[in-house]
Amino acid sequence: MDSFAVFGNPIKHSKSAVIYALFAHEIGISKEYNLKLAVQDNFNYLLHNFFNLGGLGANITSPFKENAYFLCNQLTERAEKARSVNTIKKLKNGTLLGDNTDGIGFISDLKRINWLDNNNQITSHEEPITNILLIGAGGAAKGILPILLTTITTCHINIVNRTFSRAQELTSYYQEIGYKNISCLPLYKLRYNTNKYSLIINATTSNIHNTIPKIPYFLITPDTKCYDLFYTKQDTLFITWCKKNGSNYCSDGLGMLVGQAAHSFFLWHNIFPTIDPVINHLKSVFYM
């Protein structure tokens, strides 16, 4: 049977099947979409078995995006740069095409909530600021960095991470392939930093551990836009902290989740679904 699935661990919490069903209903197609729990020891086998038995497309979530990168026969440019894959399409010749739609989903959401203007500049109610602070250097950060660097070209990106060597590795990689608007610094040095940031992105798993990234409160101004890639029913801990310290512009990652899923759907079906009704449905069903 023609089918689609999402692979991850944990997976029960995933909204991917619901999102796919809503997109499919809008377009008028009927395809099976399942949740697949995997572990490191069997992920490769389960993924190949899925496609061998008729699977047409797969989403890959934590912690298998980097594994999936090495299992694909072909890669899109954004997957190649991110060195991780969250979407796979089985081509007509049987080979697997790997893509990463996290970044384009993120940018789509920034535009949806009017944080990016038509020229891909970060909107500001004060004088223009050209710095982005990216907290985290793991898979989530890797997924959004390529499109951040190529889309918001007037901004400089600072990466901070609990383990500084990972931030250094990520920064060096992008500098080596030609991007000069990226740098990193140790987390503790933020307390001495005089930069103002127009956008602060939490790409860590701090919410899972009921913590927040240890960044200075004075980095937050009323005009600072604070985006948490994580999402919960209520404000995430990071968003709660940002609001407490004065930010008037905060968003969680639900819109990005639906946005990246829409771009996956487009890769599979060559039709782009409508995003807003799905976001509203998820908020009404799962957030109330």
Results as ranks from 00 to 15, higher is better:
residue 239 I to P: 04
residue 237 L to W: 00
residue 253 G to Q: 04
residue 225 K to I: 13
residue 244 K to Q: 15
residue 230 F to P: 00
residue 251 S to N: 12
residue 229 L to G: 03
residue 256 M to A: 07
residue 234 Q to N: 15
residue 225 K to T: 02
residue 237 L to N: 14
residue 256 M to C: 07
residue 226 C to V: 15
residue 227 Y to D: 02
residue 239 I to K: 02
residue 223 D to Q: 14
residue 232 T to V: 05
residue 249 Y to M: 03
residue 232 T to W: 01
residue 231 Y to G: 04
residue 219 L to V: 10
residue 217 Y to C: 12
residue 246 G to P: 05
residue 222 P to Q: 10
residue 254 L to M: 05
residue 256 M to H: 06
residue 222 P to L: 09
residue 228 D to V: 05
residue 249 Y to K: 12
residue 230 F to W: 09
residue 226 C to P: 01
residue 220 I to F: 15
residue 217 Y to T: 14
residue 249 Y to P: 01
residue 250 C to M: 03
residue 243 K to I: 09
residue 216 P to D: 08
residue 224 T to H: 10
residue 234 Q to E: 15
residue 220 I to S: 09
residue 233 K to M: 05
residue 231 Y to L: 06
residue 216 P to E: 11
residue 227 Y to C: 04
residue 243 K to S: 09
residue 252 D to N: 13
residue 244 K to F: 13
residue 248 N to L: 15
residue 241 W to Y: 13
residue 219 L to M: 14
residue 225 K to S: 07
residue 246 G to A: 11
residue 224 T to E: 06
residue 226 C to E: 01
residue 232 T to H: 10
residue 243 K to A: 05
residue 243 K to T: 05
residue 234 Q to I: 05
residue 220 I to Y: 09
residue 252 D to Q: 15
residue 248 N to T: 11
residue 217 Y to V: 13
residue 233 K to H: 06
residue 229 L to I: 14
residue 234 Q to A: 14
residue 219 L to P: 01
residue 217 Y to Q: 13
residue 234 Q to Y: 11
residue 255 G to R: 00
residue 255 G to Y: 02
residue 249 Y to S: 12
residue 238 F to C: 03
residue 247 S to R: 06
residue 245 N to T: 04
residue 254 L to W: 06
residue 216 P to N: 11
residue 216 P to L: 08
residue 250 C to G: 12
residue 253 G to T: 08
residue 226 C to H: 00
residue 240 T to P: 00
residue 216 P to C: 11
residue 240 T to E: 14
residue 254 L to G: 07
residue 228 D to G: 07
residue 224 T to R: 05
residue 247 S to H: 10
residue 227 Y to H: 13
residue 241 W to T: 02
residue 219 L to I: 14
residue 245 N to Y: 14
residue 235 D to T: 04
residue 225 K to D: 00
residue 242 C to T: 11
residue 256 M to P: 04
residue 251 S to L: 08
residue 250 C to H: 03
residue 229 L to V: 01
residue 224 T to W: 05
residue 244 K to C: 02
residue 229 L to D: 00
residue 254 L to F: 05
residue 239 I to A: 03
residue 242 C to Y: 02
residue 240 T to N: 14
residue 222 P to C: 12
residue 239 I to S: 02
residue 236 T to G: 01
residue 226 C to G: 05
residue 233 K to T: 14
residue 246 G to I: 09
residue 230 F to Q: 01
residue 224 T to G: 07
residue 236 T to R: 01
residue 223 D to F: 13
residue 256 M to T: 04
residue 217 Y to W: 06
residue 254 L to C: 06
residue 223 D to L: 03
residue 223 D to G: 04
residue 248 N to Q: 15
